[in-house]
Design a protein around this nucleic acid. Structure first.
Length: 583
RNA sequence: GCGGAUGUGGUCUAGCUCGGUAGGACCGUAGCUUCCCAAGCUACUUGCCCGGGUUCAAAUCCCGGCAUCCGCACCA
């Protein structure tokens, strides 16, 4: 084919122009000049996003069984205090007054000065710190937090933030989710929603936004359990890997081998890399334009122990679309400590563990009169004592300490008992693998990869300027409009049939676009430009044979199909059950 | 946040040097044509990024802001 995928910067601009012209996306707040880092999705963009999200739900909620939740965007400060975001997403910045280079203040100071700008300002003055580049004087330190802040409630000083990731809602709901999962591991929870980051300089269109759509899954599992049975589904999946150990080489191998040779550290991690690769394929992203790159230790987020990004090749270069992070037990541990709520799960033993030994049993009847209000506390201390270390004391009385006071405990206040306990389970904090998807970036990659210009079908304007024929070869499953519906001629008898067909298609849940204006070729061109995979045209023969012509976008092939069968057939082709050539 | 470039209907652009009625193409709308791959004809809608200044007069010159692109920095 002579069609070209534009790789140039100009090509991306043409694509953005098309997306804006055809109602996929518009810069937000445009009539007031716009604000960087915000985009509105137009009618087609909204449908596209719904379709991408629906595929994500079918992959992760239906197929992987993740529990879907939906939680507030506004989050009280304490959550991010304990998750570490308050600290890690806040930087105190200074810049050189001479050469205007910005620096993170803590990079210029020894010994972790914290995030108080006043304290840092004093340290800078005391130590006479100047610009490490040119020796110029430095500006006053200023705090910059990547999270948008707000206040919760009027007149309240309860600070809140717009969440920078959706994950925290799931972690703090762990107990509810665990109970809902009938207290069994492993299980996953997912959220599709918005995230907010007050980026210093958002750029590159949909790639770096201040408010963006994300879909995140948190998969909770027991790290002591070896292997992961569902991984068999992706064991043979071939992927491109760029491990941290050889950041300049791309290895092509199947996930099973990658786990065996230690390139990927666990089957759970590899499983979700496989699920991610499969999801990308279902979006119509070509395998050869994807790779998984492992983070270098220096680029890991504060919560991550290991992380593989799915990167997709775009005209901006390789762009991170999905982060698959091993968050270990970090978040649950932090929130458990921070809230005082137990966020652990039970590990059931295959064979119950039998623990035999001896222990001290206090006799509260004796302790009561001696310790009075402190009797319960004394009893607890005694039962927690180890009889073997207390052994020598037995028969001689034992000493305990309450609030710094020492007491002798008489021999008749306790007895030694041997016991045999059968333990079936123990508590532990589950580990987490998190696949986190940047939906806007994925949409951009899908659009860019499906954008083609065909110079052979170019249209020449009067000024001699050549407008290429533009096609979005979107996968039928995610295309916002599934079928264009046209009467060949704008005549009452034809348009009545076409309108009926249009209504039938919509009743089948298929988004259509009815169009009777201009020439038939122009109408096909319009549909090609917004990525509509099929068009149905009613012509004079339809009056006699009850058929219409179905035309396929990518091949321009046409077939006659009975009107009454068209909705079901289009639905099957959109669902991927049949192809056009099967008809 | 710094430096550079840029900002004209929905889109692409001419005009800016040298101030004087903002022009074209595409897209869109309505009609004609009655038509299976952007045909043609007619009519129409829509614009100088925002604010201030200079001037008789500003798309044009000056100042400030905002936005976009590139580089630096930041960020995942």
């Amino acid at each position: 084919m002579d069609e070209q995928r534009p790789q140039t910067e100009g090509g991306v601009r043409d694509l953005y122009a098309l997306l804006k012209r055809r109602g996929y996306l518009w810069p937000s707040f445009e009539i007031y000049g716009g604000v960087a880092g915000f985009y509105d999705l137009g009618p087609l963009g909204s449908l596209l996003r719904e379709n991408v999200e629906a595929l994500w739900r079918s992959k992760f909620v239906l197929e992987e069984g993740f529990q879907l939740v939906d939680c507030p965007n506004i989050t009280p400060e304490i959550v991010f205090f304990h998750s570490g975001h308050l600290d890690k997403f806040s930087d105190v910045m200074v810049s050189c007054l001479e050469c205007s280079r910005p620096f993170r203040a803590d990079h210029l100071l020894e010994g972790g000065p914290g995030t108080d700008p006043a304290l840092i300002a004093r340290l800078f003055r005391d130590r006479g710190i100047v610009c490490p580049d040119c020796g110029g004087a430095l500006s006053e330190p200023e705090e910059f937090n990547l999270m948008f802040s707000t206040r919760i409630g009027p007149g309240s000083d309860k600070r809140g933030y717009l969440r920078p990731e959706t994950a925290q809602n799931i972690f703090i709901n762990f107990s509810n989710l665990y109970r809902h999962a009938r207290s069994r591991l492993p299980f996953g929870a997912a959220q599709i929603g918005r995230g907010f980051r007050n980026e210093i300089s958002p750029r590159q269109g949909l790639v770096r936004l201040r408010e963006f759509h994300m879909a995140e899954g948190e998969f909770f599992f027991d790290p002591l359990v070896e292997g992961f049975a569902p991984f068999s589904r992706y064991r043979d999946t071939m992927v491109n890997l760029v491990p941290a150990s050889s950041p300049d080489a791309t290895l092509r191998m199947d996930l099973g081998t990658a786990v065996e040779d230690g390139t990927i550290t666990s089957e759970v991690l590899a499983h979700f890399m496989g699920a991610t690769a499969s999801f990308a394929t279902s979006l119509g992203i070509a395998q050869e334009r994807t790779r998984f790159r492992q983070h270098l230790p220096s680029e890991m987020a504060h919560y991550a122990r290991d992380c593989w990004d799915l990167e997709i090749s775009t005209s901006y270069g390789w762009v991170e679309m999905v982060g698959i992070a091993d968050r270990s037990a970090y978040d649950l541990t932090q929130h458990s400590k921070g809230s005082g709520t137990d966020l652990s799960a039970f590990r059931r033993f295959d064979e119950p563990k039998v623990i035999e030994g001896t222990r001290l049993v206090p006799d509260m009847k004796v302790l009561g009169p001696i310790f009075r209000g402190r009797a319960r506390e004394a009893g607890e201390i005694i039962s927690s004592m180890d009889p073997s270390s207390a052994g020598s004391a037995i028969g001689e009385g034992i000493r305990i300490e309450i609030d710094g006071q020492h007491y002798d405990v008489p021999d008749n206040a306790y007895r030694i008992e041997s016991f045999r306990d059968v333990v079936h389970q123990e508590r532990f904090v589950p580990n987490v693998i998190e696949p986190s998807f940047g939906m806007d970036r994925l949409m951009f990659a899908i659009l860019e990869h499906s954008y083609f210009e065909d110079p052979n079908r170019a249209e020449e304007g009067e000024s001699g300027k050549v407008e290429p024929y533009r096609i979005l070869r979107l996968d039928p499953g995610i295309a916002p409009v599934k079928c264009g519906v046209f009467p060949l001629l704008n005549r009452e008898d034809l348009s009545r049939i076409a309108r009926d067909l249009d209504a039938d298609l919509r009743r089948q849940g298929l988004q259509t676009n009815y169009d009777a204006s201009d020439s038939i070729g122009r109408r096909y061109a319009r549909m090609d430009e917004i990525g509509t995979p099929f068009c149905a045209t009613v012509d004079h023969d339809s009056l006699k044979d009850g058929c219409a012509t179905i035309r396929e976008r990518d091949t321009q092939m046409q077939k006659r199909i009975p009107l009454k069968d068209i909705p079901a057939i289009v639905k099957r082709m959109v669902g991927g059950e049949k192809t056009f050539s099967d008809m």
